Simulated assay, not measured.
Amino acid sequence: MLLDVQGRQAYCYTGGKAFDAALPTAVFIHGAQNDHSVWALQTRYFAHHGFGVLAVDLPGHGRSEGEPLATVEGMADWLLALLDAAGVQRAFLVGHSMGSLVALETAGRAPQRVAALCMVGTAYPMKVSGALLDASLHEEHRAIDMVNIWSHSGMAQKPSSPGPGFFVMSGSRRLMERISRRNPAKVFHADFSACNAYSNGESAAQAVQAPALLLLGKSDMMTPPKAAMGLGKLLAHCTVTQLDDCGHALMAEQPDGVLDALYGFCKANMAAA
C-alpha cells in the first residue's frame, strides 16, 4: 500500500490482506539498512488473525521515496504523519533495533495514540562504535559484513531455518545490499548516526502510558539485554522477555518465538486499542 506522507510516497506492507483501519492496527518498524520484509512471518500472521497491519518502509528504505531521515525524532514525526494518512488513531507499535527507538519516541510524543509498545532487540542509549560508523560511511560492504556477523548467534540457525538450502545470514546480507543498490544515499551511515545521536529515550519512556514489551535475544552482541534494562525500569508497565539461541536478528533466528511473544502480548492488550 502506498500513502502520501509529508509530500512523498511511503510504502507499507499489509500482510497479504487489504488494510482495514477499523481493525486494531499493528505497525511494524524495521531497523537500520532494512525494510518491511524482515517482518514477513509476523505481519502475515497478524493480518490473518484480527489485526490491520502496516509494516512500513522508512524514507529512503525499500519502496519509500526520499532521503533517509537524519534523526529518530524526525522518523517519529514521519510515523505519526503516516498514521494520519492511513486513518489510524491508535496503534500497536512494534519496532526492531533503530525501529524500536522510533516506536519509543512516537509513544512518548503521542501516548494517547499507542495501545501497546513492543521494542525488539533494543537498547538505550544505542551507541554505535566509531569503527562501525566510519565503515558505514566509507566501506559500506565491510559495515554490512560486520553487522551481519555480530547480529547472529551462530553460522547456522536451527531449528528456525525453514528448510534445507536456506541460509539466514546470506538473506540478511542480501537485504542490506539491496537497500544500498536502491538508494545511492549513505543509508546505513544515516541510520547509525541517528541511533548514535538519540538522547531523548529516558524522557520518552517516562511519558509512555501504554503497556510495553522488551523482546531481547540472550546472545545479542549489538544490543545486549543488559543495555535495555534501564528502559525497563523507566517504562511504567513493562514486560521483559528474552529468547534463547538468538542474537540481534531475532526475526530471522527465532521467527516463531518472536511471533508468539508479539502476538500474545498485543492480543492480551487488545482492549486498549
Rank of each mutant, 00 (worst) to 15 (best):
residue 1 M to G: 09
residue 1 M to F: 08
residue 2 L to H: 14
residue 7 G to A: 05
residue 12 C to K: 07
residue 22 A to W: 02
residue 23 L to R: 12
residue 25 T to E: 06
residue 27 V to E: 01
residue 30 H to F: 05
residue 30 H to Y: 03
residue 35 D to P: 04
residue 38 V to T: 14
residue 39 W to F: 15
residue 41 L to F: 10
residue 41 L to Q: 13
residue 43 T to A: 13
residue 45 Y to K: 03
residue 46 F to S: 03
residue 46 F to A: 13
residue 48 H to G: 10
residue 51 F to L: 04
residue 56 V to A: 07
residue 57 D to Q: 02
residue 57 D to H: 03
residue 58 L to Q: 13
residue 59 P to D: 07
residue 61 H to K: 02
residue 62 G to V: 03
residue 63 R to I: 04
residue 64 S to Y: 05
residue 64 S to N: 00
residue 65 E to L: 11
residue 65 E to C: 11
residue 66 G to E: 07
residue 68 P to V: 01
residue 70 A to I: 04
residue 74 G to P: 03
residue 75 M to E: 12
residue 77 D to L: 13
residue 78 W to F: 14
residue 78 W to N: 07
residue 84 D to H: 10
residue 84 D to I: 07
residue 88 V to L: 10
residue 92 F to K: 09
residue 97 S to E: 06
residue 98 M to D: 04
residue 100 S to I: 02
residue 102 V to T: 15
residue 107 A to C: 04
residue 109 R to M: 08
residue 109 R to S: 09
residue 109 R to C: 04
residue 112 Q to W: 15
residue 113 R to C: 01
residue 114 V to T: 14
residue 115 A to M: 01
residue 122 T to P: 06
residue 127 K to L: 13
residue 127 K to M: 08
residue 135 A to Y: 07
residue 137 L to V: 09
residue 138 H to L: 06
residue 139 E to D: 13
residue 140 E to G: 03
residue 141 H to M: 05
residue 142 R to E: 12
residue 142 R to W: 02
residue 143 A to I: 05
residue 144 I to M: 01
residue 146 M to T: 11
residue 151 S to H: 01
residue 153 S to W: 10
residue 154 G to F: 00
residue 155 M to C: 03
residue 155 M to L: 11
residue 161 S to Q: 04
residue 162 P to H: 00
residue 163 G to V: 00
residue 165 G to S: 08
residue 166 F to Q: 04
residue 166 F to H: 11
residue 167 F to I: 03
residue 170 S to A: 14
residue 170 S to V: 02
residue 177 E to A: 05
residue 177 E to W: 00
residue 178 R to M: 14
residue 179 I to L: 06
residue 179 I to E: 14
residue 180 S to Y: 11
residue 183 N to E: 05
residue 190 A to M: 05
residue 191 D to K: 06
residue 195 C to K: 06
residue 197 A to F: 07
residue 198 Y to K: 10
residue 199 S to G: 15
residue 200 N to P: 03
residue 203 S to W: 09
residue 206 Q to E: 14
residue 207 A to Q: 13
residue 208 V to N: 06
residue 209 Q to M: 12
residue 210 A to M: 06
residue 211 P to H: 01
residue 211 P to K: 05
residue 211 P to E: 02
residue 212 A to H: 04
residue 215 L to V: 12
residue 216 L to A: 02
residue 217 G to P: 12
residue 219 S to R: 12
residue 219 S to Q: 14
residue 222 M to D: 09
residue 223 T to F: 03
residue 224 P to D: 02
residue 224 P to Y: 01
residue 224 P to L: 05
residue 229 M to S: 15
residue 234 L to A: 10
residue 236 A to R: 15
residue 236 A to H: 14
residue 236 A to P: 12
residue 241 T to M: 12
residue 242 Q to Y: 05
residue 243 L to M: 06
residue 248 H to A: 00
residue 251 M to T: 11
residue 251 M to I: 01
residue 252 A to G: 08
residue 253 E to L: 04
residue 253 E to W: 10
residue 255 P to Q: 11
residue 257 G to L: 00
residue 260 D to S: 14
residue 260 D to Q: 15
residue 263 Y to R: 07
residue 263 Y to W: 13
residue 270 M to D: 13
residue 271 A to N: 12
residue 272 A to G: 10
